[in-house]
Amino acid sequence: MHLLLFNIIDQIRSLGWGGAFELLRNGIVLGSLYSLIALGYTMIYGILKLLNFAHGDVYMVGAFLGFGVLTAFGGALNPGIGLVPLIIIMFAVAMLGSGVLGVGIERFAYRPLRNAPRIAPLIAALGVSFFLENSAQLMTNGFQYNYDAFQLGGKNGNFGPLFDPVFTVAGNPVTVVQVLVVGSAVTLMAALIFLVSRTRLGKAMRATAFDQEAASMMGIDTDRVISSTFFIASVLAGAAGVMYGLYIGTTFYFMGFLAGLKAFTAAVVGGIGSIVGAMVAGVLVGLIESYAIGYVGGQWSDIVVFGILILFMIVRPTGLFGAQAIQKV
């Protein structure tokens, strides 16, 4: 134990401020993705009290849809259209496709079990997760597919403009794609907060989340509201999938599993049901992971992340924003 502590301190020293910043940057970028996925878990839990285990796989499908668009336009190394419209189309197709998938999952796997014992939809969720993972595996032969995101828009296989630095901190660059990921995540989250707090759909969602039966007796078509919730949750996951593809450069059928698990962790730490909680905790999980890898070592990162979850749940079972979870979906 002493040796480990010594190693950590040594590593912190040797990486210096520059390393500390790099880890901060990496954590925030990764955490933004976790946040987007965590939002889906928390929204769906909020409205149906269901842990939608398939949510991480919706994110995987989103990444593949983005990849499909990229391939359809000739691939990253030789895209048929400009970079900006290409990325916009990738996002649009992935978000819409994932959204439709989410609605379909709810309609065919969960809705028939709406009045079944709580365990039944949970099992159904696991089933949907396996179904999506294994279907994707069969369709992709289990290979990792390369977005070639690093080369996207670049000439002769060199790094493209996505990896140009926007600014540097202590000599460490923050690249276009990192700004893009964090920027679009923040935009989407702001849009979500607006939707939930200000629009009628948002009010209907919160009403349904709080008391589905009462909401339906107030004229709210709760089935439709639940469908919309799945749509929004899945749209966010699809967007995260494309961001991941652009930032990391690979997609594979199993990618939703661990990302989903970490995002779920974030949703719980944030106080499941709380939208702001999921956002904050997503970034937090990303940061913990990043610093654990950088300072303690990669083999510890999952132990640290999930260890913190357990500790946190003991100290504060309702999560970060659990006390106010009632406020949001």
Binding site: L195, R200, R206, A207
Partner: peptide, 29 residues
């Protein structure tokens, strides 16, 4: 009582007008 305790007073009253209006995500956003 089965109010939507997670919402404000006026939001409770606004939420129950959902049925009188056409709501879509796109339209709402």
């Amino acid at each position: 009582l089965r109010l939507f305790l997670n919402m404000t007073v006026i939001e409770n009253v606004m939420a129950s007008q959902y049925g009188q209006t056409k709501v879509g995500i796109a339209r709402a956003m």
